[in-house]
Design a protein around this nucleic acid. Structure first.
Lengths: 210, 210
DNA sequence: TCCACTATCTATAAATA
DNA sequence: TTATTTATAGATAGTGG
C-alpha cells in the first residue's frame, strides 16, 4: 500500500528500514486494538526491533494474555511456529526426499498394475456400498491431510526468507488429547492402520499472501 | 476498508463478529509476518477469540519471543523490575515449556525412521526454498489426484444406491452438506464479559525501553 | 441442527512507499 | 502529502465437531 508495491523481503537501506518498522509497528498495534474492541478478543503483541528494543501491546494487558496463553486454559488451537527443530531433521528430510522420488515414479505407472499402485488406486468397481463408503471416507481423510500439509507449506514459504523460517502450524488438539497428541505433523495413529487422517479442503493463505 | 466504514466498537451481531474476527486475525498475523521479514524483527502475537480459543503467531517462534520478553534478556534499562512483575508468569512459562518438550518429542518420533511415516510427513522446517517449492508441488499433485478420486467415488456411490433408494444417503462429508449460514445471536460470549467496551485507544500500549 | 470458524467475491476504506 | 496497494465490510457458503 503505497506509491509502489514492495517485495516482502528484508529492507537493506537502514533508514528506510527504521521508518518502515516504526510505521508498520504502529499499524500492527492499532489493528490489534481494533480486533480487541470489535470482537471482544484479548490479544498481546510483542515486537523486538532489530535494535533489540521491545514494544508491547496488550489488551487487557500483555501479561494477562501471556499468562492465559501459558496456562493453555483453552482449546489451544493455536497457530505456532513449527520452526527451529533439532539436528537430525535434515537427515529425515533427505530420506523423505528419497521416498518422494520413488513415489513419483510409481505414480507414473498408475493404472498399470495393481502391485505398484497405492491403496487409493484400488479398483472400486467391485466394491459393495459399505466398502465404498469406507473407502471414500479414507480418501477424504487423506485429502485433508494433504490439504493441511499444503497449507502449512505455503505458510512456511511465505515466511521463508533465508535460512530462518517462520510458519503457522496448528497446535490443534482439544485439551483432553493434549498429552497424547497435539500436532498437525502427526497422523501416525491412523497411518498405522493404513487409514489416512483428517479431511478438509480449505486453503488458507494460498494465494493472496505477500 | 471494505464496503463501508465501520465504527470501532464491539460488533453486536454474532455472525458478523465471527467473520470479522477470523478475517482480521488473519490480517494481523500476516502483517506481523511482514514486519518480521521486512525489518528483521522478532514478534509474537497471541489472540484469544471470543470463543476462547488461542491463536498464536511467532517469529522465529512464539515461545522464543515470549521467553525473551519475560526474561528481559536485553540491556536491562528496564522500567519494571523483571522479577517482581513477571516472576509468577515466568514460573508458569517454565511449566509450559516442560509440556512443550514432551510434545516435541512426540513429534520427533513421527518421521523418525524411514518406515512408518509417509513422505508428506517429512519435516519441512529446514527445507530450503527450492526444496519447499518442489515438495509443495508434489503435495498439490497428490491433492488433485485424491480429490478427483473422491469425486469419482461419489459418483459411483450415487449410482450404486440405485433408483430404489430414497436418496437421502447422508454422504459423510463433502458433496452436499447443509449450510449453517447466518447465525442468530446466542449468548455465551464469555470472553467479552471481562472486556471493557468502547475504548479509545488509550489502553495497552506499553513500550519497554531498554 | 447448532457452534465457531473459514473461504470467496466485490466494492471500497485504510495503510503506507 | 498523495497515489496506489492492501485490507477488509458485507453477503453468502462451506467445514468439522
Amino acid at each position: 500500500m503505497g506509491r509502489q508495491k514492495i517485495e516482502i523481503k528484508k529492507i537493506e537501506k537502514k533508514s528506510s528500514l527504521e521508518v518502515t518498522f516504526s510505521k508498520r509497528r504502529t499499524g500492527l498495534f492499532k489493528k490489534a486494538g481494533e480486533l480487541c474492541v470489535l470482537c471482544g478478543a484479548e490479544a498481546a503483541v510483542i515486537v523486538f526491533s532489530p535494535g533489540r528494543r521491545a514494544f508491547v501491546f496488550g489488551h487487557p494487558s500483555a501479561d494477562a494474555v501471556i499468562d492465559r496463553f501459558l496456562h493453555r486454559e483453552t482449546n489451544s488451537r493455536a497457530l505456532v511456529p513449527a520452526g527451529q527443530v533439532h539436528g537430525h531433521v535434515q537427515r529425515q528430510y533427505l530420506e523423505a526426499l528419497g521416498r518422494l522420488e520413488v513415489k513419483k515414479e510409481q505414480e507414473e505407472t498408475v493404472g498399470g498394475d495393481g502391485e505398484g499402485g497405492f491403496w487409493w488406486d484400488a479398483p472400486i468397481e467391485n466394491m459393495g456400498l459399505n466398502e465404498l463408503e469406507q473407502f471414500r471416507g479414507s480418501l477424504e481423510e487423506l485429502r485433508k491431510k494433504v490439504a493441511d500439509r499444503v497449507e502449512e507449506m505455503t505458510m512456511m514459504m511465505m515466511m521463508e526468507s533465508g535460512p530462518s523460517s517462520t510458519a503457522m502450524v496448528e497446535y490443534a488438539a482439544p485439551p483432553q488429547e493434549y498429552n497424547s497428541s497435539g500436532g498437525v505433523l502427526h497422523g501416525h495413529d491412523l497411518a498405522a492402520q493404513g487409514v489416512p487422517h483428517g479431511f478438509d479442503f480449505g486453503f488458507g493463505f494460498d494465494e493472496h499472501l505477500f
